[in-house]
Design a protein around this nucleic acid. Sequence first.
DNA 1: ATAACATATGAACAACAATTCATATGAAAG
DNA 2: CTTTCATATGAATTGTTGTTCATATGTTAT
Lengths: 119, 119
Amino acid sequence: MSEEKIQECKCEHDHIGFVDMVKHDMPADEHLYDLADLFKVFGDTTRIKILYVLFESDMCVCDIADSLGMTQSAISHQLKVLKQSKLISNRRDGKSIIYYLADDHVRTIIGMGMDHILE
Amino acid sequence: MSEEKIQECKCEHDHIGFVDMVKHDMPADEHLYDLADLFKVFGDTTRIKILYVLFESDMCVCDIADSLGMTQSAISHQLKVLKQSKLISNRRDGKSIIYYLADDHVRTIIGMGMDHILE
DNA sequence: ATAACATATGAACAACAATTCATATGAAAG
DNA sequence: CTTTCATATGAATTGTTGTTCATATGTTAT
């Protein structure tokens, strides 16, 4: 046990009550990690830009790279991250791979974020 | 200009059209940074846990630390981050500083995230 | 088959972020 | 005013992440 590492303060608030309440409604650790990982994906301007680009139209990798003025490799790495989070998906079209938004969660989440920063 | 660093692909899609369209609807760089910064805040399990704790009740620093089994210092550092993003706010109550959720964006954004990871 | 092209990937490097530890601040009680 | 307590902060450390560079994969066209 590493309980002794955490200092107990002596403030007058109801420790035990809160701790129990929290334990009850806190999601499972696994879900908390997944949730943080999802938000991490939105926490990078390159990925946000890619998502905005895909708001407009399904698009191949090289067009995304050109649109953002970045290298194909950098974009490809980030597309992989976005795909792992199931925010985007892709299909082949001839030589190109076309990426597109997987569902509407992306728009909603980014919309909520925008609402907050624009107060 | 560093335009020559970015390679142009020769795929048959309508480059110029897309680039223009994107430029039109892409938010200003400043907003994109703010947006990414906001999501970065949600991209850490410690901060997510703190927010969940505050869903239950306004709470002082030491109670938050105890609830999560973490040191006061670690929590205090993260509370600062959360406050800078205006997700939480605080008030003094005697010797303690009580933190509380600043508005309902937090619940909505985390709710959207949960929706996505739970498919 | 072979060449050309679009995309993916692995390793390396640099920038960043989270926790710890030690200590500072600042309110409250004696 | 001095002590105590709750919180804040700075520096150091360690782990993580984004881009670049070089190269691999796999499809299409000749």
